[in-house]
Amino acid sequence: MSDGPPPVSPPAARRSELRLRVLSAVLLVPAALAVTALGGVWFALGAGACALILLREWILIVRAQDEILASAIAYASVVGAAVAAAAGEIGAGFALLLVSAVGLALFRSVKRHKQTLWLAAGIVYSGSSGAVLIALRDGSSGLAVIVFLFGVVWATDIIAYFVGRRVGGPKLWVRVSPKKTWSGALGGFAAAVAVGWIGFLLTGRASPGVWLAFAAVLSVFSQVGDLFESALKRHFGVKDSGHIIPGHGGVMDRLDGLVGAAVLGYAVAVLLTGSAGDPVGQIITMRGY
């Protein structure tokens, strides 16, 4: 009687995982760029759908799938925030997310449903992700902003992965993400700065220091987003947020860096301009970029 196929060796498993990653990227990257180029309702639908999937994966990670009413409120809030952002009313979208999250948090304190508080946090995480991406794309320099954001996040993620595996060295934060290294983080940061330099060369607008600074800050925010998701999964003992993308896990596993860069970058722009309406476009206009 056969004992079955021999176990897959670690190097072979890594090669198989890499092939799946490359194949998934070949399919997903052109689709993301196409939707970004189309903009308008198509980008809003894409960003809104991603936000809903992020919420679904969040619910599964925090084990809140039995909270039927709270989950329904969460889904409705995320959709409402995306619609508000698409209509140019992102402030109203943020208000809806905040009211829903606070309402669920208060409900948790009364009913003592321990997962409802985590679900409230998921509303803010997923809802703000979709709303911010839609608002950035609809801004006066929306296409350039989103493409630059993609370039920085993808460069950070890809180069950090390969440099970390090749160079290794001291771990970045063992308790949260045992595989991430300082070499990978610095390699990803350097790659993002290179994207900033390419942006300057392609456009000739602003000074190279501006491009490099923007790329550097977004790269850091991207890695913060990655670590945040790792911490969430580590807390709940989950390896992947899902299995929807071959070789990558769930949508949250692929968008954690983008969420960090987009949401935190948008927050900084709002703080600098004092306005939630196209803050990045306002910075570009005010500074003459």
Rank of each mutant, 00 (worst) to 15 (best):
M1G: 13
G4Q: 02
P5Q: 14
L20M: 13
R21D: 04
V22W: 01
A31Q: 09
A31C: 03
A32F: 03
L38F: 10
L38M: 11
G40T: 08
G40M: 06
G48V: 02
L52M: 08
L55H: 04
E57G: 03
V62T: 11
R63S: 12
R63T: 05
R63E: 10
R63W: 02
L69Q: 03
A70V: 06
S71R: 14
Y75E: 01
A76Q: 07
S77H: 02
S77I: 10
S77P: 05
V78M: 10
G93S: 01
L104Q: 15
A105C: 12
A105P: 12
S109R: 11
K111D: 08
W118L: 05
A120Y: 03
A120R: 11
Y125F: 14
G127M: 05
G130A: 10
G130Y: 10
V132W: 01
V132P: 10
L133M: 15
G142Q: 09
L143E: 13
A144T: 14
I146E: 03
L149A: 08
W154C: 08
Y161P: 04
Y161T: 07
V163Y: 07
R165I: 15
V167N: 01
K171F: 06
L172P: 11
L172T: 07
W173T: 14
S177A: 09
K179S: 14
G188W: 06
A190D: 06
W197Q: 15
T203P: 08
G209P: 02
A213V: 12
F214Y: 05
A216V: 10
L218N: 02
S222G: 15
Q223A: 02
D226C: 13
F228A: 11
A231S: 11
A231E: 03
K233R: 10
V238Y: 04
D240E: 10
D240C: 13
S241T: 11
S241I: 06
S241F: 06
I244W: 09
G247A: 08
D256H: 09
L258Y: 03
L258S: 03
A261L: 05
G265M: 02
A267K: 00
V268S: 02
V270N: 01
V270I: 08
L271E: 00
A276L: 14
G277E: 15
G277T: 12
D278C: 02
G281L: 06
